[in-house]
Design a protein around this nucleic acid. Structure first.
Lengths: 333, 333
DNA sequence: ATTACCTCCGAATACGTTTTCGTAAGAATA
DNA sequence: TATTCTTACGAAAACGTATTCGGAGGTAAT
């Protein structure tokens, strides 16, 4: 491994000079700088992140937290897309990404220590879930934190516009003539509650009253649960003409149940999902597309700003619009 | 931030003693060790990875390479699952994970420098693709490398058993009475070629000759392409009774085309995918389930071994079995 | 000729650790 | 008593880097 010292010896200058030349300091003559840079390139010099981090107490490394609960974010397409976009943007900003866990290790057994151990410049909480309390601790510990779709005190947040997402979806379905609209909600968490309230608000605004039995409390990303709910809904004396699923994945569970009952989409019943994952597009599913690209980018940008500005940084919330995708699964009646 | 020095002062001992006490060295008396450990816990000491890495030249950090080409691994469920499992196992082994890119940064613009910069103990190439040449460089540079489904010279490899995967699938379809079997292959790469050769071998063994027009060259993970291929296949004068898709995702493209043609599965045509992604299970797709869990674990274990054993490590290849899932999309004829 | 001011560079220090080696004190042995 | 052995600890060096400060030499202003 070639170090500054070796370069210094090679070029007949001091270590300090080499360091400055490579970092573009102003007090090095152009010719010396060039000479050193050339030597560095020839000898294949790579800076050492550890040493640099030790000296500057900046690691150019940001931690990413997925809740490691039952449902890891990595295996949810929606979150994977966010991570992907976040990663790309962070890399453009010269940050590396380390996946932070609360597994025991040399750092102890929680997120905070893990982050401290790695000297992360900042932390992105991409799926909060059960990581919420410890993430809040991070904020208190003074680590720059940006979260997605989850609000922490005194911490920036990027949120997808669930309110208008649901509203537009319901209005669209309504505009297609649907009045008997059933809905399956996801797990009980902040996002779900926002969507629920938006749903009921919109219905009220449209003068729609949804009967109790059209409202199902389900889970995200559960094919089986949404299949069951679908079956129950369609066996009602007065079945709905349209079913809103908590997410695109869940739709496929419902679709399967429908096929089992020899019902076809959208002839016998209209359906819509939420998220806009890739496989949904393939089958022309009506859904609300969340702008994972923009979410990831915004999160990375915001985190970079927080790191940059340090103590003076003021947290803020950004709302990322989403867009209705009118596929072929909702028909006019 | 609390350091060894602070602990030393607090406990009235030297820094060396503190370090040893915390690392369980044998030449520290039990009582002193306990006293120091207690103080460390009280003061909230967290070791500093940078300093440690600098001193020991081990970072407890492994780099993960996804090919950053058009198709990022993160957004492919199959690879996301592998990463997820890999991550979990690596964490159990006290390794952190950094996503390695070839974006320009403080390290230069390629994988090798990036890995050097971060002082990675090892590198896992989870999706090789266009990263292949530089990954091979890593191996030459002496960095422990483990790859998945891609062979580098002198480097351990975890591969899914594509040969028997395809064989079992074809044999199963054959056993259900299918003789007119069409197949859509993925992009031209190593895995595809293995699957192709296994397909043709199996057919030969079964005495099956597949007409030219039943063989389509497509892409992985492309709904549109497989939709087109499906349409073409079903419009043949003598359409196949069964279509094998390159992956589960592609199936959904085909399924959509079939619905558009008012053909139903499996009544009018049987179909199968490959991979065993979650949404496939929901719709009871017949497929070959790759054991992403085992692949990730094996990769992490192997990499840990490579790191552990250092120069003396002998690369080897492990084949992870996959399993046929007989869903409802292939019917007996 | 003195002063002031640039320009360019190096010595030194510090970041937080680990590890080697030395040593003091006591215990055991001869 | 003199010697060796063991135990328990500390001093110091090193890992690779960034930065502060000072100084040498030259140039411009007074």
């Amino acid at each position: 491994m070639v170090t500054l010292k070796m370069l210094a010896k090679e070029c007949g200058v001091s270590v300090a000079t080499v360091s400055k030349a490579l970092n573009g300091a102003s007090d090095i003559s152009a010719e010396t700088a060039l000479r050193i840079q050339k030597a560095a390139a020839e000898m294949g010099y790579t800076p050492c992140a550890a040493a640099r981090s030790l000296k500057t107490s900046r690691s150019h490394n940001i931690g990413v937290i997925f809740s490691d609960g039952t449902s890891s974010g990595l295996t949810h397409e929606h979150f994977a897309y966010i991570l992907n976009s976040f990663k790309r943007r962070a890399e453009e900003l010269s940050f590396d990404i380390t996946l932070i866990s609360d597994q025991p290790g040399p750092w102890g057994g929680d997120y905070v220590n893990h982050v401290r151990f790695r000297n992360c410049d900042g932390v992105a909480v991409l799926v909060a879930d059960n990581a919420a309390p410890t993430a809040q601790e991070l904020v208190r510990a003074g680590v720059p934190v940006v979260s997605v779709d989850y609000h922490f005190d005194n911490c920036s947040c990027i949120e997808s516009d669930n309110v208008s997402g649901i509203r537009e979806l319901v209005e669209y379905v309504y505009s297609q003539g649907h009045r008997k609209i059933a809905v399956i909600f996801g797990d009980d968490n902040v996002v779900t509650r926002i969507r629920m309230s938006s749903f009921f608000n919109t219905c009220t605004k449209l003068g729609l009253t949804i009967p109790e039995e059209y409202i199902c409390h389900g889970r995200y990303h559960s094919g089986e649960l949404s299949a069951r709910a679908t079956r129950r809904l369609m066996e009602l004396p007065e079945p709905p003409t349209c079913i809103l699923y908590p997410d695109d994945f869940s739709y496929f569970g419902g679709k399967q149940a429908l096929e089992d009952m020899c019902l076809s989409v959208p002839e016998d019943v209209s359906v819509a999902g939420y998220d806009g994952i890739s496989v949904g597009r393939v089958v022309s599913l009506t859904t609300v597309q969340q702008d994972t690209e923009a979410i990831g980018i915004a999160a990375a940008n915001e985190l970079a700003r927080a790191v940059e500005e340090g103590r003076g940084y003021l947290p803020r919330t950004q709302v990322i619009p989403c867009s209705l995708i009118t596929g072929a699964t909702v028909r006019k009646i």
